[in-house]
Design a protein around this nucleic acid. Structure first.
Length: 654
RNA sequence: GGCGGCGUAGCUCAGCUGGUCAGAGCGGGGAUCUCAUAAGUCCCAGGUCGGAGGUUCGAGUCCUCCCGCCGCCA
């Protein structure tokens, strides 16, 4: 079972794995719903909301809104040529357990996309939240000796806590237990009903009491002494033949529209996802059940209070209810004025069908536009293996972010895994690639340059970066790479965006080696010293561009780079994508006291010991020759430094 | 079983509309430097492009079969 969006084993749901009730025999998913008191929607913690006003993302506060960005390529998804808003959603995560990497991954991606769109000046609505209905919730709560509501509240707190640690800046956090959500579900259902798209029909199939689930005939196994396969494969107990009345949604009525939708290049992405959906549609869309009579708690169907709304119908509408501000009555007609249709639903590939087929059908029935895009990202593995508690292979995002920090986690998953493809996490590789990019390349490059500026120019920028020649290779590379990064961000190609921006940092280090300003600054002529000063400005300006370019991916690091360059937090908060263009650093500007902006990642001791022990089994641990040589050099350096210090004149404290 | 996707250096990937008989990053090895975060820079090694056939002057790239992995559907 897919680890993404759902770490649990088969049968669990997080807008995932579970199968939807359909008119065909043998398909059913049980769920339970707890009717809970109304609760306010959670707002993003960073945003202070004035009474009666919708929340605004803090990133834009104080910044000027721009209507055009020269860095932005024409036609890019989410670009200015399209609407002036940007609505992005993650799945509404199932709160049967604490968040796992499978939910953190798409949330990070949505946050990166949101931050980029905010830098462009868009009115961004980043919607995430939780789906709190279902029998698994009740079971998990009971197991913990808690009410379902208390359980949900606790898990939701863990989600928001983790999102805070991962620098997730959502605008809306919707919970499907909110009364406003229920009200909108009822309203949407009413519209579909009036349209004639809901009808009563019997659903029958084989039911396992222990699973609380209907079984497909193929799934069942033959029990002892029986010829016919009628047993639950999990519990090995006889399934009961059940027939119950349900309400069904007339999805088949919208087959043509949905097939046309799926034929579009830009609706379902990546392109490989479309094929399986087209195959599914061509088999003929069948109506699906949207109610359950057997489940006591849930949103009551007003037209027949013996029924509660089936959880998929309910949860998908969270994308609508979550957009509505508190002061707006929960009505379907209000939704288009508040960021609908969504620009992109970011989802795991395992729940594509619900988002690309059922959801559009529901929306068409309710008279609402469909989302602009559904992006099915790939699955994650760890050390090449599927993740899952049952498999004993888990990746705890809380532990990861606590150990290594938000920027490292975000960069790895965005840069090293191609969004849309499956990807792997291994801790050694994680440290290596993050260190290489952020500590050794970018961080050291900035530090060495700031130290030179401090030493030879008292941290004052000697000239305008805009005055540097337009044909300066570093400047030209910036002019090439930052627009490329913008295009990549717009296409949700985060690894390409990261590579494009970081290429500028790499080139900066090369440029320093080519020009060796430290030599010229020490011993050069006045002209040579001026040239060297220009090199420092060029490199610092390039790093400033990199900071803006990386801001969606590594907001904390970018902020620290800006601080090191002498800018205030307010100045950082006010940046726009236009600031990624060359020319921001001005003569006279003072940089801060040099300090590392990214501390290299080290293996935790226990983990390192465990890794060493594991490696010892496979092969004797041996430090590489390079490492030994490096240690030796370090010792020599320390010795030389001590000797030099002893011989040098006393140094005046700054 | 049907359909679809994938298999390229130790790892992660590009190339994949036929033509320097394969590249990048990370890791590894060597050299060099000391402005700097045990960093930087330069150089090098690593490839049966899953396997076997075929088409072609020429195939990682097109066709067939087989093997393995993943996804969807029954």
């Amino acid at each position: 079972m897919s680890p993404v969006a759902c770490a649990s084993s088969a049968g669990s749901r997080c807008l995932a794995a579970s199968r939807i009730l359909r008119a065909a025999a043998g398909r059913c998913v049980p769920f339970q719903h707890s009717v809970v008191p109304p609760r306010p929607a959670l707002w993003a913690p960073a945003v202070a909301v004035a009474a009666g006003q919708p929340a605004e993302p803090s990133g834009l506060r104080g910044g000027s809104l721009r209507t055009h960005c020269s860095s932005c390529p024409p036609g890019a998804a989410g670009s200015h040529q399209q609407q002036d808003y940007f609505t992005i959603t993650t799945p509404l995560y199932y709160v049967n357990a604490a968040p796992h990497m499978g939910s953190a991954y798409p949330t990070i991606a949505a946050d990166v996309a949101s931050r980029f769109q905010r830098l462009l000046g868009k009115r961004v609505r980043f919607l995430t939240g939780t789906d709190e209905h279902g029998e698994k919730i009740a079971a998990a709560a009971e197991k913990r000796g808690m009410t379902p509501q208390a359980h949900c509240d606790d898990i939701v707190a863990q989600y928001t806590d983790l999102w805070g640690k991962l620098d997730i800046r959502f605008d809306r956090f919707v919970r499907t237990t909110e009364s406003r959500h229920a009200a909108l579900v009822v309203d949407v259902l009413g519209r579909c009903w009036e349209r004639g798209d809901i009808y009563a029909a019997d659903y029958e199939g084989w039911y396992c009491v222990d699973c609380e689930e209907f079984k497909d005939e193929k799934e069942m196994v033959a029990l002892d002494g029986e010829a016919q396969p009628r047993g639950c494969p999990t519990h090995r107990k006889p399934c009961q033949h059940r027939k119950e009345a349900n309400y069904f949604f007339r999805l088949s009525k919208y087959s043509k529209e949905i097939e046309e939708l799926l034929s579009r290049d830009d609706f379902v992405q990546p392109a490989s996802r479309r094929n399986e959906l087209m195959s599914y549609v061509r088999e003929g869309l069948r109506d699906f059940s949207i109610s359950r009579a057997a489940v006591d708690w849930g949103i009551r169907v007003p037209q027949d209070p013996k029924h509660t709304v089936y959880v998929w119908f309910d949860a998908l509408i969270g994308y609508l209810s979550g957009l509505l501000p508190e002061d707006v009555a929960p009505a379907t007609s209000a939704v288009p004025a508040h960021g609908w249709p969504a620009s992109v639903h970011v989802i795991g590939k395992d729940i594509l069908r619900f988002h690309a087929i059922y959801w559009p059908g529901m929306l068409l029935s309710a008279g609402l536009p469909v989302p602009q895009k559904v992006y099915g990202h790939g699955f994650l593995t760890k050390d090449g293996l599927k993740m899952g508690k049952a498999l004993g292979n888990t990746l705890d995002p809380q532990a990861l972010v606590s150990t290594y920090g938000s920027d490292a986690v975000r960069l790895y998953f965005m840069k090293e895994i191609i969004f849309g493809q499956d990807g792997d996490f291994s801790e050694g590789r994680f440290r290596d690639v993050v260190n290489a990019a952020l500590a050794n390349n970018l961080g050291n490059g900035l530090n060495r340059t700031l130290n030179l500026l401090a030493k030879f120019h008292d941290s004052a920028v000697p000239l305008d970066s805009a005055s540097l020649p337009a044909d300066l290779p570093l400047r030209q590379l910036a002019a090439e790479k930052l627009p490329a990064a913008a295009a990549a961000y717009g296409s949700l190609s985060f690894h390409e965006a990261a590579e494009a921006v970081l290429a500028l940092a790499s080139r900066s280090n090369q440029y320093l080696e080519e020009t060796q300003p430290w030599t010229k600054l020490k011993k050069g002529t006045d002209e040579e010293k001026a040239e060297a000063a220009a090199v420092l400005v060029a490199v610092l300006e390039a790093v400033r561009c990199v900071a803006v370019g990386l801001a969606p991916l590594t907001p904390g690091l970018s902020r620290r780079i800006y601080a090191q360059l002498g800018y205030s937090d307010a100045q950082f908060e006010a940046i726009t994508w236009a600031d990624s263009a060359w020319g921001g650093l001005q003569a006279g500007h003072r940089t801060a006291e040099p300090a590392p902006v990214f501390v290299r990642l080290e293996a935790p001791e226990d983990a390192a010991a465990a890794a060493a022990a594991a490696a010892a089994k496979a092969a004797p641990p041996q430090p590489s020759k390079k490492q030994l040589a490096k240690q030796k050099k370090a010792e020599q350096k320390a010795k030389q430094a001590a000797e030099a210090e002893a011989a040098a004149a006393p140094v005046t404290a700054p």
